[in-house]
Design a protein around this nucleic acid. Sequence first.
DNA 1: AGTTTGACTGGAG
DNA 2: CCTCCAGCCAAAC
Length: 114
Amino acid sequence: MRDYPDKMTVEQARAFQADVLNIVGQIPRGCVTTYGMIATLAGWPSHARMVGHTLRCTPGAERLPCHRVVNSAGRTAPGWMQHRPLLEKEGVTFKANGNVDMSRHLWEPALDLI
DNA sequence: AGTTTGACTGGAG
DNA sequence: CCTCCAGCCAAAC
């Protein structure tokens, strides 16, 4: 018995992407969250990669605060030079190694969403 | 229809 | 802290 859902249908993929965009839009200023967290909130915990794909490819994602999404280590997206400056402009602090200080800025959706 | 890619993740070295 | 690896899964080739 699989402990994760079957492959997404086209409709599920569309719903997932809509949820991802909706969730990203709710990240408070000065906070960050992870791809895996968004995937989990959208109901597909193993689809962290698709969250990244959605933010990179989906038109309309540009006007969302997608810069408030980093990977689980707090690292900014590879190949996106504006990522770190955008966060710093909101007051997000980085550690010496160049990662976001997750202990200070990680968004706790449970306190805000549900 | 099979292979490669990637804005991921957690663990190992 | 860093890089590498296996597992992951939709999308792009």
